[in-house]
Simulated scan of single mutants.
Amino acid sequence: MWGKILGALFGLALLRLPGLFIGLILGHWFDVKMGANLARFRGLFNESEEQQGLFMYTTFATMGHIAKATGVVTPAHIRQARHFMQQLGLNEAQQQEAQAAFRDGKASNFPLVAQLQAFHQHFGRQKDVTHYFVEIQLGIANVDGEMSHEQYQLLQQVALQLSVSRLQLEQMLAAYRAQQRFNRHDSKRPSANAMQDAYKVLGVSDNCTEKELKRAYRKLMAQHHPDKLMAKGVPAAMLDVAKRRTQEIQAAYELLKNRH
Rank of each mutant, 00 (worst) to 15 (best):
Q171S: 08
E49Q: 13
Q196K: 13
L167Q: 13
K257A: 06
I249D: 01
R189L: 11
T62W: 03
A236P: 04
Q180C: 07
M221D: 06
L154N: 04
Q96H: 11
A93L: 11
M63L: 06
A178D: 08
I140L: 01
A198W: 07
A67E: 00
L6Y: 12
N183V: 10
G145K: 00
G11I: 05
E170M: 09
K232V: 03
F123L: 02
T246C: 07
L12Q: 10
D144E: 11
K200N: 11
Y253M: 07
P226V: 02
F123A: 00
N183R: 14
G233P: 05
R184E: 15
L138Y: 04
V158A: 02
E146G: 01
L169C: 03
P75E: 05
Q96A: 15
H260R: 05
Q96I: 10
M238C: 12
R181A: 14
E248P: 13
A39P: 06
F30N: 13
K188E: 15
P18M: 08
A252C: 08
R40L: 14
V143E: 04
T246S: 04
T70R: 07
Q171A: 10
A251C: 05
A100W: 09
P75M: 00
Q99I: 13
D128Y: 00
A141Y: 00
H28W: 13
F41W: 02
E135R: 14
F119P: 10
L112H: 06
L169R: 02
Y57M: 09
N109R: 09
W29R: 15
V158H: 08
A175H: 06
E170P: 05
Q171L: 07
Y57V: 09
A98C: 07
Q80S: 14
A8I: 10
Q86Y: 12
R181W: 04
L202H: 03
A178H: 06
P226A: 01
E146M: 07
M63V: 03
Q161F: 10
H260Q: 11
T74R: 02
A159K: 07
L154P: 05
L112P: 10
A13K: 14
I22P: 08
